[in-house]
């Protein structure tokens, strides 16, 4: 993951933090294209349960992933206060449905601690480490495992 992480010249990382079901998560800002308010999505047939549907981003059709469902935290009941983080990894662009975006932070890579064992297994699979900030725990998401690479469009 760190290879694709945006590193500033001083070796610092900029991250976007957000909350899902009250828990703090973060991803590298380099992957974030933009952040949008929630709009109803179009249901996709035969989709995995964590895919809420399709959204229109200025003419591009994107699938929206319910991160809460993906991380095993239960289905989100989206309301207009929810936001969609548009994320690009490789050639694909997807939207992540989250409750709220909290902050943009600058962290030193060595601040990242390994994931403690207490986390639920499904959540842990998608986390590459945690940052402690202001007594809050930010779980750094591993985008590659959330959006498995090399699977190609089927």
């Amino acid at each position: 993951m760190s290879d694709v992480m945006e590193q500033t010249s001083t070796g610092l990382r900029e991250i976007v933090s957000f909350t899902i079901k009250g828990q703090g998560f973060c991803i590298d800002i380099g992957h974030v294209l933009e952040i949008r308010g929630w709009t109803p999505t179009t249901k996709l047939p035969h989709a995995p349960d964590y895919v809420t549907g399709l959204m229109n981003l200025r003419g591009t059709v994107l699938p929206v992933i319910d991160l809460s469902m993906r991380l095993g935290l239960g289905r989100s009941e989206p309301n207009p206060r929810h936001v969609i983080i548009i994320v690009k990894l490789g050639d694909s662009t997807v939207g992540f449905l989250v409750e709220a975006v909290s902050d943009i932070l600058t962290v030193r890579p060595e601040e990242m601690k390994p994931t403690p064992d207490v986390a639920s297994n499904q959540t842990k699979d998608f986390i590459e480490g945690v940052f402690a900030r202001d007594e809050q725990l930010l779980r750094a998401l591993d985008l590659k495992s959330i959006m498995p690479a090399g699977q190609g469009a089927l």
């Binding site: 059709v61 699938p63 050639d91 469009a153």
Partner: peptide, 14 residues
């Protein structure tokens, strides 16, 4: 027409 394959994949029936 907007393809689904770029960001998703082919969907049966669609």
């Amino acid at each position: 027409i907007k393809g689904l394959e770029q960001n998703y994949r082919q969907v049966p029936g669609i």
